[in-house]
């Protein structure tokens, strides 16, 4: 359900990008999806297939997912660590003053469009 809503936003933005670039078919959309973005890539691609095939611009268009590993930063000891493995508490000093540096992206990285060879 959640992923379907996101797919509608992706379609809206890809349509805009296609119009800006005078493109009439898109063969692939590449997404950056953070590890802690709460988006499940498998659900996203399933929803994408269902919704994208209803659009002339996106029929058969593949959704590729690049996973961005989540990294947190500890303000107490100024070190970075893997968020998924250690959570909120810093594994080096056990401090709680930590925040996410990256890993919550839901971002359209790029689109691929077929180009006729000259």
């Amino acid at each position: 359900m959640h992923e379907l809503g996101i797919v509608f936003y992706i379609i809206r933005d890809v349509k805009q990008a296609a119009a800006d670039n005078h493109v009439d078919h898109v063969s692939a959309v590449v997404m950056n999806i953070g590890e802690v973005s709460t988006v499940v890539p498998e659900y996203l691609t399933d929803c994408w297939r269902w919704a994208a095939d209803k659009e002339d611009l996106l029929r058969g268009c593949e959704l590729k997912v690049c996973t961005i590993p989540a990294v947190s930063f500890c303000d107490d000891c100024r070190k970075e660590y893997e968020t998924v493995r250690f959570g909120r508490n810093c594994p080096f000093c056990q401090g709680e003053n930590t925040y996410l540096l990256r890993g919550n992206e839901v971002e359209i990285k790029e689109i691929e469009v077929p180009e006729c060879p000259l």
Binding site: D13, E107, I108, E112, V113, C116
Partner: peptide
């Protein structure tokens, strides 16, 4: 093989809504 052109977007899907 069909050639592919890559167009960089680099935009959060939430940006428009924000």
């Amino acid at each position: 093989m069909e050639e592919v052109k890559v167009i960089e977007i680099k935009k959060s899907v939430f940006a428009e809504n924000e």
